[in-house]
Design a protein around this nucleic acid. Structure first.
Lengths: 247, 247
DNA sequence: GTCTATAGGAGGATAGAC
DNA sequence: GTCTATCCTCCTATAGAC
């Protein structure tokens, strides 16, 4: 009896289609070495598929990179938005605490990086690199995360009445810097603290980030409100003009 | 009369030797595109020198990269250490404020990035990328900055009596994340704030970072001290054992 | 959808003249 | 110290068979 055997194409995992296998491998390797540090050959070999499939499925290496970045962003943002709306509703008729807002912003990310599996871990390490790259951040971060960030900042402003928008934006920048460095999990804090802290211990980060950042926001607003002179803008402008010689 | 004309080798700047020209160009290009995003040809062309000189002066591309990283670290760290000692002396017989310590840590960096010229600006953008890279941070950041960081953390601990070391390390991690994202100057906050904040406005960062971070440190310590049960470790261990089934 | 084969270029490094 | 010329590897992308 002749057994017809189909050629084995999905070599290792057996179930996942090639397109996803490529995305998974690319995610892991881009996260570690960056866009230019990895070749499409590295990726397709790790995925167990042919080189040509990158062009076939995505069009090219660059499009693959953005596809990797986009895939999980689309899953995350609705959840984060829902969590933001939830803390808003729970606080009605008042406004949520800064801690709750920051938590809604960070918890879905930290939770998935901690317990979502290696794909999520890689993804956030990739986000960390992208966020700190003058080449990639302006296109990828802005495009995939800023619409959500604007909503968070609007709620932050409600929770910080009397605080100027500038303080809130700067406070947000410090928050996202602290958060993304955490995602990078470089192990630097491990050696620095002689093992007392572990960069993989995202539960410890989760406990601490919201209080830290909330206190930071409050300090920024307090500083701005106390430093600001009780004069209208026109009067301050006149004074500035007088002292302009010193510059 | 025959004029003997030397071949023009130092093409544009005229004065700097080739080795430094290579370092300057490499710094600028690595900062923007990362180690793998730039070829030695890109670098030597930008420097106006020959490709072969990278091997001659540095040994290879990788050694050039570390040389770029090391060059300014060696200039910065003594100055930062001196500033740390100065704020300590000024506070005697007490201890300096958190704000002053954080300022000693960040000011020499922000000041040079703001007004040290384009070389310094590029350098700090490079540091931002390296600090967030799982591939590079463990070797470059640890090697060139951690000895100094340990000294700062020791003084931070003096300024935070009764605060556990873990809180201080985590607080430092958030600080360095916020600081290095600032150095990246990706322009993201510019678009996010519709121009209200500019990522190149490091004076605004300088005013805000120390208050933000100092308040964050205090919040971490307050949280740890209030959350920590007033029981010896042995008693807590016994309790943990009892509730272990829930896990 | 997947693979073979190959085009066509760009990569890092180096030997050796000057 | 600097440049010319060259080696050989590795890259991305694509045409076309299956």
């Amino acid at each position: 009896m002749v057994v017809v055997r189909r050629k084995i194409t999905r070599k290792r995992t057996g179930t996942k289609p090639g397109k996803e296998r490529i995305l998974d491998a690319a995610e892991r390797l881009f996260a570690r070495h960056g866009f230019y540090g990895i070749s499409v050959r590295d990726i397709t070999e790790a995925a167990g598929v042919d080189v040509a499939l990158v062009s076939y499925h995505f069009g090219g290496k660059r499009e693959l990179f953005t596809a990797v970045f986009q895939r999980r962003a689309e899953l995350l943002n609705p959840e984060r938005l829902a969590m933001l709306e939830e803390v808003r509703r729970a606080a009605l008729p008042g406004v949520p605490t800064l801690e709750d807002i920051v938590n809604a912003f960070t918890y879905p990310l930290l939770e998935r990086s901690a317990r979502g599996g290696p794909g999520w871990k890689s993804y956030f390490a990739l986000v960390a690199q992208v966020n700190n790259s003058p080449e990639w951040a302006p296109v990828l971060m802005t495009q995939h995360f800023d619409p959500l960030v604007e909503k968070f900042i609007a709620v932050l402003r409600e929770a910080l009445p009397g605080c100027s928008a500038r303080e809130v934006y700067w406070g947000y920048q410090f928050l996202t810097g602290a958060l993304t460095l955490t995602f990078a999990e470089t192990g630097r804090i491990d050696t620095l603290s002689s093992g007392l802290c572990k960069s993989s211990d995202l539960d410890s980060v989760h406990e601490r980030l919201a209080p830290y950042v909330a206190a930071g926001f409050r300090a920024l607003c307090a500083r701005a409100n106390s430093a600001e002179p009780a004069l209208p803008k026109s009067a301050r402008a006149a004074i500035s003009a007088k002292s302009a010689k010193r510059r």
